[in-house]
C-alpha cells in the first residue's frame, strides 16, 4: 500500500526528488516491515508474568499465578486467556512454553474471513474487529494452530485471541507480555532482527539448542518464533504443518472462480445453440418403449 502511494507521489515530484525520497526511505524504519516476538524457551522459568500482564491489559481473566497450580495441567488458550504457559517434562528438565496466536505472515484466519474482521494489520499482527465479524467461525476451522477462540456462552460472542498488543505497538510501546517478562525469554523486534538473534544464539551455543527455529518457515513464517533445547514435538508443537502458507491451499480454487464464470456460461449457451432451437423433443432411450407400453 505505502509503496504504491510512495510511487504515486514520486511520479508527481519528479525524477530528482525520487532519488532523494528513496535514500531517505532506506534510512528510516519501514513501517510495513513485519515485527514479531522471539521466544527462547531455554530461558523461561514459568513465572507466568506474561499471562498476568496480558490479561490485565486486555481485561481478561487474571490467573492466580501463585496458588492455582495450573502448570501441573496442560492448558490451551481460551476465550478468557489469550496466552498460557505450559510445563513439559523432557530429558533436559522441565521446559516452559508460552503459547498464543502465532501471527502468521500469511494468516489463514484473515484469508478465511468473509468480512475482513480478522485482519492482518500493518507490520504483521493479526487483529479481530468486532463490528465486521459475523461469527461464522471459519477462522477457527482454518487456523492451523487453532488459536481463535469463540465465546460460546454469550449472546453477542467475540472471537478472542492475542493481538500482539497492536494498540500498544501503535503508541510505540512493546507488547505487554514482552515488557512483563523478567528473564528476556521474550524479545520483540523486527522479524529479520529476531531471526538473526535466534541464529546467533544457536551458533554460539550449538549444544544448548536444537538447530531449528520454529516459525521461521512453518506455515510460511510466523510472527512468533521459538527456540528450544529439545525437539519441538516434545514441547507441544505440531511439526507436521508444512512450510506452505495456508492461504495457498485455496489459491487455485479462487483463481479458477472467475475463469469458470467467464467460460461456463459461454459454453452452456453454445451447447444450447448447437442442440437447435424449437426442435421437437429429443427421443430418450425409453421414449419409444414408453409409447409401446402405452398402446398396450
Amino acid at each position: 500500500m505505502d509503496r504504491r502511494g510512495f510511487l504515486k507521489t514520486s511520479l508527481v515530484v519528479g525524477g530528482t526528488a525520487l532519488s532523494c525520497n528513496k535514500a531517505r526511505a532506506q534510512e528510516q524504519h519501514d513501517p510495513d516491515e513485519f515485527v514479531g516476538i522471539l521466544v527462547d524457551t531455554t530461558r523461561c522459568i514459568g513465572c507466568r508474568a506474561c499471562e498476568v500482564a496480558c490479561s490485565e491489559v486486555h481485561d481478561n481473566y487474571v490467573p492466580d499465578v501463585v496458588n492455582d497450580g495450573a502448570l501441573e495441567t496442560r492448558r490451551k488458550t481460551s476465550d478468557k486467556q489469550w496466552t498460557v504457559v505450559n510445563k513439559y517434562k523432557t530429558d533436559k528438565g522441565d521446559v516452559f512454553v508460552k503459547t498464543q496466536c502465532m501471527h502468521c505472515y500469511q494468516a489463514a484466519c484473515a484469508t478465511a474471513c468473509p468480512t475482513e474482521a480478522m485482519k492482518q494489520m500493518q507490520g504483521g499482527p493479526v487483529v479481530w474487529r468486532g463490528n465486521k465479524c459475523i461469527g461464522c467461525r471459519f477462522c477457527m476451522v482454518s487456523c492451523p494452530f487453532e488459536m481463535p477462540k469463540f465465546e460460546y456462552g454469550e449472546w453477542n460472542p467475540k472471537l478472542q485471541k492475542c493481538t500482539m498488543c497492536f494498540e500498544r505497538l501503535e503508541q510505540g510501546q512493546k507488547p505487554a507480555c514482552v515488557e512483563a517478562c523478567p528473564t528476556d525469554t521474550l524479545m520483540f523486534g523486527s522479524r529479520l532482527k529476531n531471526l538473526e538473534v535466534a541464529r546467533h544464539r544457536i551458533y554460539s551455543h550449538p549444544d544448548n539448542y536444537v538447530h531449528h527455529i520454529y516459525g521461521e518457515n512453518e506455515v510460511g513464517g510466523t510472527g512468533y518464533i521459538y527456540l528450544s533445547a529439545v525437539p519441538f514435538e516434545q514441547i507441544g508443537f505440531r511439526t507436521d504443518l508444512g512450510t506452505r502458507p495456508y492461504p495457498e491451499y485455496t489459491k487455485e480454487f479462487l483463481y479458477a472462480v472467475p475463469m469458470i464464470l467467464f467460460g461456463v456460461p459461454a459454453f452452456l449457451l453454445g451447447l444450447n445453440t448447437l442442440t437447435g432451437n424449437n426442435k421437437p423433443p429429443i427421443e430418450g432411450e425409453f421414449d419409444s418403449e414408453f409409447e409401446v407400453t402405452k398402446h398396450e
Binding site: 484473515a110 468473509p114 460472542p157
Partner: peptide, 29 residues
Amino acid sequence: ALLIDLGRPWNAPNPYIGNSFGFSSVLFL
C-alpha cells in the same frame, strides 16, 4: 440455517454491503 449458526447474525449483511468484502475468502464467495 447458516444464520442460526452464525454467532453474530446481525452482521450477516456485511459481506454484501460496503467496506467489508473479504475477497480472499471462500466463504465470501
